[in-house]
């Protein structure tokens, strides 16, 4: 077994001032340069030797990297290095993206979230990344700067496997663009950990819905799961059941069953695959029932 070191190994630190500088450094050191935002994951992995970068590139002071802006047309733009507390207390986020606030506040603790960033959370590409569910459900675009200019990657195409994402050499995430949710949208994020709050997810589920006359049920739903597959996933099978309708306890249950079927969890020290599968059903059903209740209230 590998034991964590008492301190951080040696590395150099540079505070980048332009995107071009970052891209240049990343290309120059393809194997041993690492982007550095909040460090909450990087530090832990450096201490236990899982990651041994020779250079950390701090991008927090790049223009726009910690900015949060909103425009009803283009939606919410979150700088990749904006910290989670800044996101969760932003008035626009509170007003239009309560689901995002829920997923952010589910992460660890307040002091950790002063450092942790949504960009970092997404780039860890951990199956249990809480904000990844919000990104999937809200159909965020992840914008990367790179040698060939900016590139926007749909959240659904970003996660490739545990710790693997779609960024190419020389690219780095600069912002997360989250469209304004459809009219009448309601969403809910539910996470199950070992402690009541603040643990990594054993399993998590997010659901959202909105009225849509083109759907037979009159509503479109979205469902996403965490910690139960190599990446955070959407569950189109569950979404289809609810689009078909009618929406009631039975179809919510059927959709939750579809989520359970879509989950491909593993056994690990946090939970067994068997328990995780069962929890996918519980959490998905609860999220759907709550969303449905909110939709009916609004309707």
């Amino acid at each position: 077994m590998e034991l964590a070191n008492p301190g951080l190994p040696n590395f150099d630190y540079v505070r980048a001032t332009t995107p071009a500088e970052v891209i240049g450094l990343l290309l120059q050191h393809p194997d041993d340069a690492r982007l550095f935002m909040g460090g909450t994951d990087v530090f832990v992995r450096m201490r236990d030797g899982a990651m041994t970068p020779k250079l950390l590139i701090d991008v927090k002071r790049l223009p726009g990297l910690t900015e949060i802006t909103y425009d009803p047309e283009t939606g919410l733009h979150i700088g990749a290095a904006a910290n989670m507390n800044a996101i969760a207390r932003h008035p626009v986020v509170l007003e239009h993206y309560p689901l995002l606030v829920e997923s952010v506040n589910a992460v660890a603790s307040y002091p950790l979230r002063t450092r942790a960033t949504m960009g970092g959370n997404l780039c860890n590409a951990s199956p249990c990344a809480d904000t990844a569910l919000a990104a999937l459900l809200l159909e965020a675009m992840l914008v990367a700067a790179g040698p060939d200019g900016d590139r926007a990657i749909p959240a659904g195409a970003f996660f490739l496997g545990p710790g693997k994402h779609a960024l190419k050499p020389g690219e780095f995430l600069t912002r997360i663009e989250i469209p304004t949710p459809p009219a009448g949208w309601a969403g809910r994020f539910i996470k199950l950990g070992r402690n009541a709050h603040g643990d990594l997810a054993i399993a998590s589920a997010a659901a959202g819905g909105y009225p849509d006359e083109s759907a037979p049920s009159g509503y479109r739903f979205r469902v996403a799961l965490g910690s139960v597959a190599p990446t955070p996933i959407r569950v189109p099978e569950a979404e289809a059941i609810l689009a078909q309708g009618p929406i009631n306890e039975k179809t919510c249950d059927a959709a939750a069953d579809a989520a359970r079927a879509a989950a491909r969890p593993i056994d690990d020290v946090r939970a067994s695959a068997k328990y995780r599968k069962a929890m996918v059903k519980t959490l998905t059903r609860r999220a759907l029932v709550e969303v449905w209740a909110m939709l009916q209230k609004e309707g």
Binding site: P6, G39, F43, R115
Partner: peptide, 27 residues
């Protein structure tokens, strides 16, 4: 813990609480 988990090193940076073990001095 030196891992941002226990909170014993919490300090304020510009008014906001952080785990000091999770911040580089140079920052």
């Amino acid at each position: 813990c030196a891992a941002g988990e226990c909170g014993a090193c919490t300090v304020l940076i510009d008014g906001e609480p952080v785990n000091a073990c999770m911040v580089l001095a140079v920052e």
